[in-house]
Design a protein around this nucleic acid. Structure first.
Length: 284
DNA sequence: GCATATGATTGCAG
DNA sequence: CTGCAATCATATGC
């Protein structure tokens, strides 16, 4: 929906065409945009390049996108959203290139058109090369100002894309089904002490392809919400307890002399009741 | 559309 | 710094 408002450029293009067409050879006053070293343009160009919108097509683009995401993301990679992000960026890039090409083509066409007009006029009145040069210069300036608009709105679109995808809080994504599966499994199988160590968190993070702090958040939320009303989670608890019981049963059966599957010396801090059933999880 | 679920953030305490 | 509790903002199911 917010894709790109490049279409805004089209009227501009046509209006310029008409403007110049109407005033063939007359004074065109829009020449105040004098800019070989325009800082604004350079800024836009640099940003587009850095964002991988302009520049080499596929490989460079994705690399730049990944670099950009990594640069502002901080943590190395969760990479779940990268594909989505990259797809949208590719889309922007395509639109940008298409439009750019269109403008270029239009510019060339129009230049030759004007040249032809001038050539025709040269039969009725003398036309100096200087004048032709001036006309061409005017046309090119006009078109490059249009290009700048294109670049500007492309930058805008990229910025919006970025903020949408990289601002984690605004665009919350639920974890994958299997990720919550893994987390829940851990939670309910360590219900008496649902505080994973740093290593355990790292392991879980790796398995779920989320970050460690996301694991911490999840456990924080889960603990408080579980405690808040245990009743609501009872069904879930039983489900996962049963599930782990199956796997635990194997371990228990394999090593019968170890009578406990969970940590034997956990102090059971605070309000967590012993799990509905798990340590004697052998199926009967 | 609304109610609920859920991930993230904030403020506070130890 | 970690965890808890409240809260925010979005996602999701109806």
């Amino acid at each position: 929906k917010h894709a790109l408002n490049c279409h805004r450029m089209k009227p501009a293009l046509f209006s310029v065409l008409c403007e110049i067409k109407e005033k063939t050879g007359l004074s065109i006053r829009g020449a105040q945009e004098e800019d070989p070293p325009d800082p604004q343009l350079m800024r836009l160009d640099n940003m587009l390049l850095a964002e991988g919108v302009s520049g080499p097509e596929k490989g460079g683009g994705s690399a730049a996108a990944a670099a950009a995401a990594a640069a502002s993301g901080g943590s190395s990679d969760n990479s779940i959203e990268h594909s989505d992000y990259r797809a949208k960026l590719t889309q922007i890039r395509q639109i940008y290139h298409t439009e750019l090409e269109k403008y270029e083509q239009a510019c060339n066409e129009f230049t030759t058109h004007v040249m032809n007009l001038l050539r025709e006029q040269s039969r009725t009145r003398p036309i100096s090369p200087k004048e032709i040069e001036r006309m061409v210069g005017i046309i090119h300036r006009k078109f490059s100002s249009i290009q700048m608009q294109l670049k500007q709105s492309t930058c805008e679109a990229v910025m919006i894309l970025r903020s949408r995808f990289l601002d984690a809080r605004r665009k919350r994504r639920n974890f994958s089904k299997q990720a919550t599966e893994i987390l829940n499994e851990y939670f309910y199988s360590h219900l008496s002490n649902p505080y994973p160590s740093e290593e355990a968190k790292e392991e879980l993070a790796k398995k779920c392809s989320i970050t460690v702090s996301q694991v911490s958040n999840w456990f924080g939320n889960k603990r408080i919400r579980y405690k808040k009303n245990i009743g609501k989670f009872q069904e879930e608890a039983n489900l996962y307890a049963a599930k782990t019981a199956v796997t635990a049963a194997h371990a228990v059966a394999a090593a019968v002399q170890n009578n406990q599957t969970n940590s034997p010396t956990t102090p059971n801090s605070g309000g967590y009741p012993p799990s509905c059933y798990q340590s004697d999880g052998r199926l009967q």
